[in-house]
């Protein structure tokens, strides 16, 4: 039977990591994942890949040597993008996250190239607290399984990078009062 002491006593009594491979019902995810360039308290973990969900990837197919006015892009091809990221009245501009020369990559203010699959590296430059929590597991979402190899959502899996705040919407249902 369970129940040797309180939960906290039981937690404190264990130092060994849980033997992960023993859960046979945990299958490999069908989604594409990449090994994160960070490690969490349990070592290496994986992140859901992003690039295959970007509709017009690779960007360099259009963004060639030919110069293009940023204003035209915002009006035509990328007219669906509304930037609502950054302080009110001082929104970010494309080049603050996207690499100016190599369009298939993101870039931070120091010009460090960041792969779209590893966008947490870029987001974490400003949102370092969220990134720390995301690496540990207090922010973000694990995918499908609590057991087995750790696979988590990328920042962009939940947040629209151009408008990262969650939208307001109607609730799915309602709850009855507790005393009913």
């Amino acid at each position: 039977m369970a129940g040797q002491g309180s939960v906290l006593e039981r937690i404190d009594a264990v130092d060994e990591p849980f033997a992960k491979p023993e859960i046979e019902s945990v299958r490999q995810l069908t989604a594409t994942t990449v090994v994160a360039m960070e490690t969490y308290q349990g070592g290496e973990f994986r992140v859901l890949a992003r690039k295959e969900f970007i509709k017009r990837f690779r960007c360099s197919v259009c963004h060639t040597e030919k110069p293009m006015a940023a204003r035209d892009g915002a009006l035509f091809t990328h007219g669906d993008i509304r930037i609502n990221h950054g302080r009110a009245g001082d929104a970010l501009v494309c080049a603050e996250c996207h690499h100016e020369k190599e369009r298939d990559f993101l870039a931070d203010s120091q010009g460090l190239k960041v792969d779209f699959d590893h966008s947490y590296q870029l987001c974490g430059k400003c949102h370092f607290r969220q990134k720390r929590d995301w690496i540990g597991g207090a922010h973000g979402k694990r995918e499908t399984y609590w057991a087995g190899e750790r696979v988590v959502q990328n920042c962009t899996g939940c947040h629209n990078p151009h408008s990262p705040a969650f939208p307001r919407k109607m609730p799915e249902t309602y709850s009855l009062p507790l005393d009913d």
């Binding site: 939960v7 039981r10 937690i11 264990v14 130092d15 060994e16 990591p17 849980f18 969490y40 308290q41 349990g42 070592g43 540990g136 597991g137 207090a138 922010h139 973000g140 979402k141 694990r142 609590w146 057991a147 959502q153 939940c158 969650f166």
Partner: peptide, 21 residues
Amino acid sequence: CPTGSRVFGNLLDPDSEIRFV
């Protein structure tokens, strides 16, 4: 949960997300 407010895991695994929380 679309916001990641819910964390579930093994309390006896020192590496788990719930233990991090």
